[in-house]
Amino acid sequence: MKHRITLRIGPATFRMGSAWPGPIRSLERLYADYPAPADGIADFTVRLEPVSLLRRWLRPSIFITGDHGLADAAPMSLAHGLLAAEMGMNLQMALGWRRHLLLHASSVEKDGRVLVMTGESGSGKSTLAAQLGERGWRLMGDEFALLDLETGTVLPFPRLVSLKNRAIDVIVAEVPAARMGPLLAGTAKGDIRHLAPRADAVARMDEGAPPALLLFPRFGHAPAIRPVGQGETFMRLTQASTNYVALGEPGFAALTRFVTQVPALAMDFPSGEEAIAMVERLWEQQR
């Protein structure tokens, strides 16, 4: 394809091809600090193609595909090209990654131990991870936490953090502009802006750590914390994993180990500041 880039994020390497230069330029800027892939062989190929030949120029529409794709994926406007590229990488991981158990979760590390946060879109897990990442924690990822099948260690997958709607202003206020992507207004999920993780988090992207706490955050509720039973945790995590079934027995072993070893709490919170204070308190109690 005409425009291309190869990116390594944690253990996975992506070869991206695009019919347009725009999405690749955005990636080049925001992923500038990431280490180059070792030998140029990619785990996944992602293609950003015109829906039809005509739509390459006229109201350009991107069809996201690659090694793994969804036949009925809705095309995206070229203005949202960066989002399309990120979704293309997510799609490959979600459908094709087999080397770790993939949890749809954000993760941050402090004192050599990991806090994993999982929940639906809108639960606040992404924003909370991004905020903690600016306050002394190491951001490991906002979308996927990778669970090592043998050791149970959580590995980073520090892609760009995708901030939505109200979360954008919260983060913009505390992060230099050079780490922010363009504002993508009016996507299917509202306004989106991407945040590049801090350089130190990127530099340590091959460094995993054992999980110490699992949180199910829920934004927009009065502060409350309740323990979550192992059975419920297991069930919710199988639903939050895109490759649990595909991994078979090793996935079962990794997930049951995680559920029995890592305490799980549901955390309701009314605001970001409140959430950060709650997390810090919980973290102190876990030590």
């Binding site: 070869r15 030998d39 140029g40 062989i41 990619a42 190929t45 090694d67």
Partner: peptide, 9 residues
């Protein structure tokens, strides 16, 4: 590397 990428895809 180029041939491997093509082969795998």
């Amino acid at each position: 590397a180029g041939q491997w990428n093509a082969l795998i895809a």
